[in-house]
Nucleic acid binder design. Structure first.
Length: 467
RNA sequence: GGCGACGUGGCCAAGUGGUAAGGCAGGAGUCUGCAAAACUCUCAUCAUGGGUUCAAAUCCCAUCGUCGCCUCCA
């Protein structure tokens, strides 16, 4: 079966192939670190984590690079506001972001390069662009010349004639063309700066990604990802820069995730209408965030609301229910029933792969997982034993973990409490045998307030930590 | 003004030519001392108006609406 991926460059789904057999070179644009990351960052990070995990599931070896933009105007401004060093400010937000990613169960990147660490390559690329007549120097600044690039605009589907450069901001008069963009910015007093052939300064936003790609993945890569707000100008400019130097197609597949919205607007740092990852995770498990993304499709926008999170949480509990063990006193399934359960598991795996092969159709993949979960629950209700359930549950685990879901029961305090709860449940069993409903209900209610869910059946009780 | 995406049941959402996946919520049951969970059954003709076709949510045109990008943004 062949994986197809929607390529922004061609606006079609294409069969996925790699430059080097069995290996994927993948680059995803990370954040500019000047504020706490919000759910939009989480969405993007999750989307590409899911893609990466699925590629690995398919047997690819993935070299996954996600950068940090750790020097830029916003960081400098924020640092000045707070009266702190911009580098330590960036450091602090990088640490916070990495912690967020870990809490969301996002696999660490192969490498997290930073703009400030690849300065020699950045400067070298700018020099090559100048030699190529793709760039020019003005008073210590260096600009890329869009007129030098015949196919500028091919990713975003625009031409330099049709864009209203300067309709919303003032154009720098020194530029040869209004769309020209900065490769190198000369330093103002007090700003972080690096030595260069054009004087002290720092890199423009776009060139750093081109350079980090070059250093960590090479001239050409298989997948380049990011939010669809980066298509223009950021990714357009990356293509222009890199291809002007190499003369070869840069990324084979351009993948872009849809935007996270809050009510009527895009969630963004500059609009200030955001929910941070920290805020979200203080109230919900990381799995809920991931499941929310999985229930939709990565190219479509997602709108945050309490109602949707509540729905997702319910779905999450449903998934959890499939992982439960046999009911007390289960007699076991017949050969025939067991065979049906195992067939359903195999069918689910197949349906999962078909869905994911179609441009990571996670909503459809989740449908097969929900159905497998239902089949498992049916088997349990029909009296399956732990062992019998286990054969299907291992497939369930395989599929959910491929999507990065943890589906672990929360253990609130630690396992040391378990023995005490077991004891209470045992005592309560006796109370129930004596039909002391008042006392047994009180125990159940009190345990509930401590986060322990007790469930009775006619053959005994089970308990679990509330999720 | 230009470019692009989208509009499917109360909510989220798959489905791009053959009469609508899945989840949440709701309704009716089974089980149970009760509760919870689980299980069973139930719940839409796809923004609107035209057109193409034996056949359209799915193709074409128009209209209305929503969102993103054209400036830093995942």
């Amino acid at each position: 079966m062949a994986l197809k991926i929607y390529n922004t460059l061609t606006r079609t789904k294409e069969e996925f192939t790699t430059l080097e057999p069995g290996k994927v070179r993948m680059y995803v644009c990370g954040p500019t670190v000047y504020a706490d990351a919000h759910l939009g960052h989480a969405m993007s990070a999750l989307v590409f984590d899911i893609a990466r995990r699925y590629l690995e599931y398919k047997g690819y070896e993935v070299r996954y690079v996600m950068n940090f933009t750790d020097v830029d105007d916003k960081i400098i401004n924020k640092a000045n506001e707070l009266g702190v060093d911009p580098f330590s400010l960036a450091e602090q937000y990088i640490a916070g972001y990495k912690r967020n990613l870990e809490e969301l169960n996002i696999k660490p990147a192969s490498v997290n390069p930073r703009a400030t660490e690849d300065m020699p390559q950045i400067i070298e690329m700018i020099q090559q662009l100048i030699y190529n007549d793709s760039a020019y120097v003005v008073d210590g600044d260096v600009y890329y010349s869009v007129d030098s690039d015949d196919d500028y605009g091919k990713l975003s589907g625009r031409s330099i004639q049709t864009m209203n450069a300067g309709s919303r901001i003032q154009v720098d008069e020194r530029k040869e063309h209004p769309m020209d963009f900065a490769l190198w910015k000369s330093a103002k007093p007090g700003e972080p700066a690096w030595e260069s052939p054009w004087g002290k300064g720092r890199p423009g936003w776009h060139i750093e990604c081109s350079a980090m790609n070059m250093v960590h993945l090479g001239d050409q890569i298989d997948i380049h990802g990011g939010g669809n707000d980066l298509i223009f100008p950021h990714h357009e400019n990356e293509i222009a820069q890199t291809e002007s130097i190499t003369g070869k197609p840069f990324a084979r597949f351009w993948m872009h995730n849809g935007m996270m919205g809050l009510k009527d607007d895009k969630m963004s740092k500059s609009l200030g209408n955001m929910v941070t990852i920290d805020q979200f995770l203080s109230e919900h498990p990381g799995d809920v965030m991931r499941l929310w993304v999985l229930n939709g499709s990565y190219r479509s926008p997602l709108t945050y609301s309490e109602a949707v999170i509540e729905q997702t949480t319910q779905g999450y509990k449903r998934l959890l229910s499939a992982k439960k063990g046999a009911l007390p006193g289960s007699a076991g399934l017949s050969e025939n029933e067991l065979a049906k359960l195992q067939d359903a598991a195999q069918a689910a795996r197949q349906g999962f792969v078909e869905a994911m092969d179609d441009d990571f159709n996670t909503a459809l993949a989740m449908a097969t997982i929900y159905e497998l979960g239902k089949t498992i629950n049916q088997a349990r209700a029909d009296g399956a034993t732990d062992t019998q359930l286990g054969t299907a549950q291992s497939v369930f685990d395989e599929l959910t973990s491929t999507l990065g879901l943890k589906l672990e029961e929360e253990t609130a305090v630690g396992t040391s409490a378990d023995a005490f709860i077991d004891l209470l449940v045992a005592l309560r069993r006796d109370l129930r045998a004596e039909k002391n409903w008042a006392m047994s209900d009180e125990i159940r209610d009190k345990l509930k307030s401590l986060g322990v869910i007790l469930e009775d059946s006619k053959d005994g009780s089970t308990w679990s930590w509330e999720s």
